[in-house]
Structures are given as C-alpha cells and as structure tokens.
Amino acid sequence: MKTDNYTDLYKLNKAHVVRVFDLTDKEKLFVFRFDDKDLASTWTYKPGQFVQIAVPGVGESTISITSSATRKGFFELCIRKVGRVTSVIHKLRPGDVVGIRGPYGNGFPMEAMEGKDLLLIASGLGMAPLRGVFLYALDNRWLYGRIALINTARYSSELLFREELDAMLDMTTAENLLIMQTVTREPEYPGLKGRATEYIDQTGVDPKNCAVIVCGPPRMYMDVFRKVLQLGFSPDHLYMTLERRMKCGVGKCGHCVAGTATNMVYMCKDGPVFTYYDIMSTPGLI
C-alpha cells in the first residue's frame, strides 16, 4: 500500500503580516497573506472556522478567523494577548512570518440561514468570529433579510471593532441593517447600556423567520436562548460557537473533547459551532 498519499496533517503554511491594527488594550487585528501566491488566492474558509497560528520555536495558538472569505487574498485574525504564544504574536510587525494550518472546524451553516433575517449577538471577544459572519452576510446581502448585530462588552474601551461598526452606521437604513453597541459596566458611557438580551425586541427582525448566532462567554448562551425563545424565535436556527484547549485541530490530540458518554464531541472537528439542540442534548458542552 502506498503511504506517500497521506498529506502531512501538521504542515505549516508560511504567511506574513501585512498590517496590524490596535483594537483595544488587549486585542490587535492582524492582516495576513500567504507567501505562496496560489494559496493566497485560492485559500478559502467558512464563517466560524478557525486556524492554528504558529510562531516556530514558541508554539501554536487556536484563533478564529475574523474576516470573510468573500474578500480574497488575505485573511484577518483578531488576537487577544493572553498567553505565551499570543504575547509573541502581539510583537509581530508587517513583514514578519508565521505558520498557518487550517481552516478547521465546521463553521456556521450560512446556506441554511439563507432567506432569513439574522440576529448576531456578540459579547467581548465573541465579536471576532461574528465579524466574519457579518461581513460574509454583507457581501452576500441579497441572500439574507434584515441583519441585526448587537455588540456588547463590559466597558466601551473593550468593544471590539467599535469604530469600524460606527463607520457603518451611515449605510444601515439603505442596507436594512441594525448595529447596536452596548456596555454593561460603564454608567457614564453615552451610548446604549445593559445586556444584549435587553435589546433583542428592538432589533426589528422577524422572530418567525430569523437565525440567531451568539458568541461570547459560555455562561451567556442559555440566557440569550431563553430570551429569544420567550420572544417567539424558532429553536431550529439558534447557533453558537464554543472554545476549548486545542492542539491539533483535526480530532486527534483529545484536548477539546467534551460531553457525555452518549455524545462525546471534538470541539475542533464536530464544532466549534453548535446548535441549541446540541447544547440541550450534551451536558457539559457549555
């Protein structure tokens, strides 16, 4: 039997930093491009998928893709400085090189949401994967109904992509969009205050025909789901994305395994996107 046919699962593809933007004190947005021209122009991914980004000699991190594959030639990662690898990544400047594997994960079923309104609810770093969904939906604007985005954080200084979203406010009426940015712990903030759940009924989406995508700390998921179900949204189209420790991204290393005996899942392969029904049938998932 020939064994040369197997591709190397762990092969790193060389990519370089094109630009770096400071988003908050802790998060930066990195624009990358693969050095291989063919790969750079053909590499594609779904909203909600992630990559493994490696700084050789330091290590590898699991980061969700925050751009949309509808825009070719580059991809963007929003990276929080939180550990050993991400601290080194934060020091990278344009031209510096990293290794990329992926894309991995199931991603959001954007096709299944076609024809529906979209309600996107992001909290904190959850805005990173949801920005990919938002940009994808804008680039395929005719496929979706009204698109509402609620971006929330504890403090306004932690609102990810706040300026970018503010800059889009001009086009919301023409494009049938709604963008809300709310903070929970800053009483002097001049904009919206409070949790995302308090604003769902003001988004103007049609509960009977709307997909809901939530991304944030796991403890917020059930609150949001309870609220939308109470408002009459269908449980058939509730999605969220989860995180775990991941080392391989291809369902081998076992670190992201979660669930119970009847339903043991690899977050990297079976997720990171799960539905309302997944959560209800898999204790321990959130």
């Binding site: 762990y10 000699g57 290590g59 080392k247 290393c253 076992g254 395994v257």
Partner: peptide, 26 residues
C-alpha cells in the same frame, strides 16, 4: 487512549525549531 501534547523547542543556535509531541493524559 490517544491524547497528546505538543511543544516547540528551538535548537541552541536558534537556526531551527522542532515540534515535539508526547502522550498526554486527561
């Protein structure tokens, strides 16, 4: 059981870095 852990290790001259893996345990 098949969990594994990986880590990077640069050589002393910093000319290359290897990624190693060893068995891990839940």
């Amino acid at each position: 059981c098949r969990c594994y852990e990986v880590w990077d290790e640069p050589d002393v001259e910093l000319s290359s870095a290897s990624r190693f893996r060893r068995w891990d345990s839940c």
